[in-house]
Design a protein around this nucleic acid. Structure first.
Length: 458
DNA sequence: TAATATT
């Protein structure tokens, strides 16, 4: 039925409203079709705008490719149709390079000329924004991995192009997994997850997933008041939080209802016990965040919370604001950076901190929440301080106290501590997400704090 | 400085 040397073709730039039966006539003119499949999302069934096509005859595939590839643009598409052998037909992504630190002037042809001494180039594209301006980087695909490696050896760091801020970058392009990680990290940064915790845990830890899911839930729950983009962004985050491209099996996350923990109108948002240190966001050349060392973490009297905003004093005029603003006041620990970044929130919200009296961080004594609101954390890393566990547990609700126990004599952490929330749901959420969570060689033990009289029989 | 998609 199909020749043994038949070629499977990848078809790109297909309008999403065309299905197999619409596509068949376009391709049939080059020969008998053995198989034609529109690529759909595994879970949603959504048309992904591309397809696989196998002709019975190898010759038909070659004819179709030369007649159609980049030759015409289907209705509704901005770019011409793609017809080329599928990745599965050769080797995967080990021959594709990312080229960074190009000048804005360089064209596809300029880049091609730079790379062609090292081998045969299959594709060469400068990345451009919607307005056509170069993003200062490109993808170059060689026919073999060896050629690609030769280009890296010769060109990476070899010169600084006019208009570029640093020397030329030539490296293998991200794999699909790495792309997912990078996207995740960008969202994480937009969300204000600058804490050393998030960085240490990496973008796909159970912690991050728990955090992202809560972010998504929070935004989704309030998006009805805002604009439809918020809902879309929330859905996107939810999807990202669900993906686990590393294949790491994270601690299962029980669905959490952060709304009850953060927007209870009867409970004013409460100041956390300890100011969070200002954490410099250190970025490596590859765009991945680096873990700041302890010495780079400067304590700051102007306490900077993870989201860059200040907490509302418990007795602030926030009570006079409308219910929506109150809800936001309760949410600020999670979402302030997010809506600000996207312009989703009304000026009333974004300006709220400015019109409220600022109070210096209080020397608040350790407070315990009601029964069921206090958790015990054991097997903390030695270097974790109040600030770290505060940041670690902020995502689960309003933290009213976070304390690592230290040895009186040495000032060293005893590797356990307590965190108190203002409601039991937050405490349960924290336990669910963080108990058993691996840090380094150890696993956190996170459980409800025993009532003071628990082991007293009478 | 990172993307139109590859069952």
């Amino acid at each position: 039925m199909k020749e043994p040397d038949a070629i499977k073709l990848f078809i790109g730039q297909i309008p999403r409203n065309l299905d197999e039966k619409d596509l068949k006539p376009i391709f049939e003119q080059f020969g008998k079709i053995y198989e034609l499949t529109v690529i759909k999302d595994k879970f949603t069934g959504m048309h992904k705008g591309c397809a696989f096509l196998t002709y019975c005859a190898r010759e038909s595939a070659l004819k179709a490719q030369s007649a159609l590839h980049e030759q015409k643009t289907l209705p509704g598409m901005n770019r011409p149709i793609q017809v080329k052998p599928a990745d599965s037909e050769s080797r995967g992504e080990d021959r594709k390079l990312f080229v960074g630190m190009l000048g804005k002037q360089q064209t596809d042809e300029d880049v091609r000329r730079m790379f062609e001494p090292f081998g045969n180039i299959d594709e060469c594209t400068v990345l451009r924004g919607p307005d056509g301006t170069s993003k200062g980087c490109a993808f170059v695909k060689f026919q073999t991995h060896t050629e690609a490696q030769a280009a890296i050896n010769a060109l990476h760091g070899s010169r600084t192009l006019p208009g570029a801020s640093s020397s030329l970058v030539v490296k293998f392009a991200d794999t699909e997994k790495e792309r997912g990680l990078r996207r995740m990290q960008q969202v994480a940064n937009q969300l204000g997850m600058f804490s050393p915790i998030a960085l240490q845990f990496g973008a796909y830890s159970a912690y991050t997933q728990a955090l992202m899911q809560q972010q998504a839930a929070l935004v989704a729950a309030h998006s009805a008041y805002l604009n439809p983009m918020a809902t879309m962004a929330a859905v996107q985050m939810q999807q990202m939080a669900t993906i686990n491209p590393n294949g790491i099996i994270a601690t299962p996350i029980t669905p959490i209802n952060p709304i009850t923990s953060s927007s209870g109108t009867s409970t004013p948002p409460t100041l956390a016990a300890t100011p969070v240190s200002a954490i410099p966001a250190t970025l490596g050349v590859n765009g991945y965040s680096a873990v700041p060392t302890q010495s780079t973490v400067q304590p700051s009297s102007e306490a900077i919370y993870t989201n860059g905003l200040h907490p509302y004093p418990a007795q602030s005029p926030v009570a006079q604001l409308d219910p929506l603003q109150q809800a936001y006041a309760g949410m600020q620990h999670y979402t302030a950076a997010y809506p600000a970044a996207y312009g989703l929130v009304s000026p009333a919200f974004t300006q709220a901190p400015a019109i409220l009296p600022q109070q210096p961080p209080q020397q608040q004594q350790q407070r315990e929440g009601p029964e069921g609101c206090n958790i015990f954390i054991y097997h903390l890393p030695q270097e974790f301080t109040d600030s770290e566990i505060l940041q670690m547990f902020l995502p689960f609700g309003n933290v009213i106290s976070a304390k690592v126990f230290v040895d009186r004599a040495t000032n060293q952490s005893k590797c356990f501590g307590f965190v108190s929330f203002d409601n039991p749901g937050s405490a349960q959420a924290a336990i669910q997400a963080m108990n058993g969570f691996q840090i380094g060689m150890k696993r956190l033990k996170v459980q409800l704090k025993r009532p003071k009289d628990a082991n007293r029989p009478y």
